[in-house]
Design a protein around this nucleic acid. Structure first.
Length: 577
RNA sequence: UACCCCGUGGUGUAACGGUAACACAAGUGGUUUUGGUCCAUUCGUUCCUGGUUCGAAUCCAGGCGGGGUAACCA
């Protein structure tokens, strides 16, 4: 198996509670000292960042303790599942950097064994065929505070149960007509133990077993059996299954399984400004609030990948957030920072003007031009340099010029001198505005030829360095800026009777059509990521880019401390009024 | 108003009875040809009340608070 997670240094163990548990099991020689986990998604949707946590936990455990981790599809409900999901899930797990080698399993692959255990339970008098329909069963189950009442079919004979179960399997009864139930305790304070359903009749074809089965096992019944059949030692799942553990143990202990796995629960991931429930993600996709499962605003792995997230950033994030039993919500900036940390070290830099403003260097000879050396990545000396064309007419960022500059504004303003990165010092002499709107449309500057490359021989300093592109040499490309999909920190918190969709951020996508980029960007491979200096990290969209005509997605912006300063100034101004 | 789980800075995670650590956020300074990076620095009487102990975030009891659970979903 590949080993993308750094091994924990011996001097700093810092094991989470699951790792501690596994470590002590191993030390005590339980499960023969083996560690075997599994990642068991149901193929009914695309994987998201919450699954990434589970994947890192399960595969990470195996790596750390010299064990194995399986990929298993929990495909016990044919009505919601499909091969599309089976394929996307495998692709995403691999992309994240994990390898299940030859251990790919399907719950459906165990259907025959699982059925065999059902007959065993019937023979032991521990399961019975029940003729109650859904509504009646609910009524018999009781409530959270009141005990349930036994089904009238609870005391059928073993022979009758066996006969009925076999006929259920044979498809003799209509869907929903009967179920196989465990005979446990209708008065249990744990609802899961009030004779839970083991098998239901479903006249539905399965994406792998076709029409072979007319009955399908439930999760609670199939899961412990699959775990045991795969010789899983530690079955890690999320907190909402805590109350299911007694049932997990019941199934495991009452069936003659080849091994005895144990279930351990941890808190599922929540992140601010997004939703991580399959049901809600499905709605966003189906109701077209986003462009598909790989919409870059989605927390799906395919969305994050398209957005420009790297597998290593996601793994780092999962490492940092830890594993515990407290139902917490992680600030989305934690995710963004993991990406910044990764890309800062690896992403080549380039200059891109997102909202162009024309600049003319009045004392630069007309028709002249030259190429200047630019550093590809200041964090990585081996990345080398590249040539960037310079000429008399340039574009700079609209934000980098102010006719009326506030205090602490280091960029270009009338009479102020700044450095054009890797080029020259320039001083703004005048500017022209659109008579209709008053908007600045052109800035006229002079440059100091002695400052070529960006340093003044006389030692004079400038406060600001801004990026630029040559007007004639630059290329155009659409640039998509993404913001949080939801406008509120906790989108699921919604006023009575309202839907989480009310919290959708109407400005989560902004497409810039007029951006001008340095020419080297034309040949950037789709899917690769660069830093647009002073802006952020941008990925050439893997779907919409064409050879020589990239389309860019902003993965994440750079930290922007000027924005903070400016905001503070504005707040001060507002307070003064 | 049943059962289960959880409660440490703004957000997360550690400390395994011996004077609360790490990451992120926020603030302040420094460096800087990215207002990026980097460096330094500030920010918690561990939900409450009792108890055990020389000593409690850690153990016990009782509160309080949060979450989960009543699909023939997973």
């Amino acid at each position: 198996m590949t080993a993308p997670i750094e091994p924990t240094p011996a001097d700093a163990p810092r094991l989470n509670f699951v790792e501690e548990r596994v470590q002590s099991d191993q030390a005590a020689g339980r499960h023969g000292g083996r560690v075997h986990t599994r990642f068991p998604p149901e193929p009914n949707g695309y994987l998201h960042i919450g699954h990434a946590k589970a994947i890192c936990v399960n595969f990470g455990l195996a790596q750390r303790f010299g064990g194995r981790c399986n990929l298993r599809f929990d495909d016990t409900n044919p009505t919601t599942e499909s091969v599309e999901y089976v394929e996307s899930i495998q692709k995403d797990v691999r992309w994240l950097g994990f390898d299940w080698e030859d251990r790919l399993y399907f719950a459906s692959g165990f259907f025959e064994s699982i059925y065999g255990f059902a007959e065993e339970l019937v023979r032991k008098g521990l399961a019975y065929v029940c003729d109650l329909d859904g509504e009646a069963m609910r009524a018999h189950r009781g409530t959270l505070t009141a005990a349930g009442t036994p089904s009238p079919w609870r005391e059928r004979s073993v022979e009758e149960n066996l006969d009925l179960l076999r006929r259920m399997r044979a498809g003799e009864f209509p869907e929903g007509a009967r179920t196989l139930r465990a005979k446990i305790d209708m008065a249990s304070p744990n609802m899961n133990l009030r004779d839970p359903v083991l098998y239901r009749i479903l006249h539905a074809d399965h994406h792998r077993t076709g029409a072979a089965w007319r009955i399908y096992p439930t999760y609670d019944y199939a899961h412990p059996l699959c775990d045991a059949l795969e010789h899983i030692t530690h079955s890690i799942c999320t907190l909402e299954f805590e109350n299911h553990r007694p049932l997990y143990d019941w199934v495991r202990d009452n069936c003659s399984t080849p091994s005895k796995p144990e279930q351990i629960e941890f808190a599922r991931l929540n992140i601010t400004y997004t939703v991580l429930s399959k049901r809600k993600l499905l709605r966003l996709v189906n109701e077209k609030h986003v462009a598909g499962w790989d919409d870059p605003r989605l927390p799906t792995l395919s969305g994050l990948r398209r957005r420009g997230y790297t597998p290593s950033a996601i793994r780092t994030f999962c490492e940092r957030i830890g594993v515990a039993k407290f139902g917490s919500t992680i600030d989305v900036v934690q995710l963004e920072n993991a990406l910044r940390d990764d890309l800062n070290k690896t992403a080549p830099r380039a200059m891109a003007v997102l909202r162009p403003l024309r600049v003319v260097i009045e004392n630069y000879p007309e028709g002249a031009g030259e190429e200047l050396d630019a550093v590809n990545n200041p964090e990585d000396p081996t990345a080398g340099t590249r040539k960037v064309p310079f000429s008399r007419e340039l574009y700079i960022e609209r934000d980098d010029f102010r006719a009326d500059a506030p205090k602490d504004y280091f960029r270009l303003a009338p009479g102020k001198e700044v450095r054009l990165r890797y080029a020259y010092f320039v001083t703004a002499k005048s500017f022209r505005t659109d008579p209709a709107t008053g908007e600045v449309v052109e800035v006229l500057c002079t440059y100091d030829p002695a400052t070529r490359g960006g340093n003044a021989p006389d030692g004079r300093k400038v406060k600001g360095t801004i990026h630029w592109v040559s007007a004639e040499h630059s290329i155009a490309a659409p640039v998509r800026l993404y913001d949080h999909l939801f406008g509120t920190e906790f989108p699921e918190e919604v006023p009575e009777g309202q839907d989480f969709l009310v919290n959708l951020n109407p400005k989560s996508l902004e497409v810039l059509e007029g951006a001008r980029l340095e020419p080297s960007l034309a040949k950037l491979a789709p899917g690769s990521t660069v830093q647009f200096e002073r802006h952020g990290y941008f990925c050439a969209d893997a779907v919409d880019s064409r050879p020589g005509a990239p389309v860019f997605n902003r993965a994440v912006s750079l930290r922007d401390s000027w924005a903070k300063v400016e905001k503070k100034q504005q707040n001060k101004k507002a307070a003064a009024k």
